[in-house]
């Protein structure tokens, strides 16, 4: 985890970052649609920069319109078998959950779990 930002952040004026989040491979059904343009908080509640780990929780809390959260998250982590691409690159190349999201990033979630 990166150091927390020095600037104290108040709930009311939390800065946001704009990103694009896409869901493929059946995941779109959990989030209403495939393509989302989002403004997410730039930092979590303790002031740490928004990471993929934070985004996943944020998506579950604010965007998922299906009660079956276990199809996306298992034990607090992205469900094994769901691929995450950060600007087209496998998240394993980018630090996985610890990757700090930048403005303009494109985050893609692709499920491999649906039938073929």
């Amino acid at each position: 985890m990166a150091d927390s930002t020095e600037v104290p952040i108040r709930e009311s004026e939390t800065p946001t970052i704009s990103i694009a989040v896409d869901f493929y491979g059946g995941l779109h059904t959990l989030f209403g649609k495939g393509q989302h343009k989002l403004a997410i908080p730039a930092a979590d509640k303790s002031g740490n920069p928004a990471t993929i780990g934070f985004l996943v929780t944020h998506l579950c809390e604010t965007k998922m319109n299906d009660p079956r959260t276990e199809l996306f998250v298992l034990d607090g982590h992205i469900r094994p078998g769901i691929l995450v691409l950060i600007n087209e690159a496998d998240w394993e190349l980018e630090g996985e959950e610890a990757y700090e999201i930048q403005s303009g990033d494109n985050i893609v979630f692709v499920s491999t779990l649906h039938g073929g």
Partner: peptide
């Protein structure tokens, strides 16, 4: 399976994925 899905993704192949 991971590479199959990535192959489809990067080649922009259209496939159907509803359970």
């Amino acid at each position: 399976e991971k590479e199959i899905v990535l192959y489809a993704h990067h080649k922009k192949l259209e496939y159907f994925s509803t359970e």
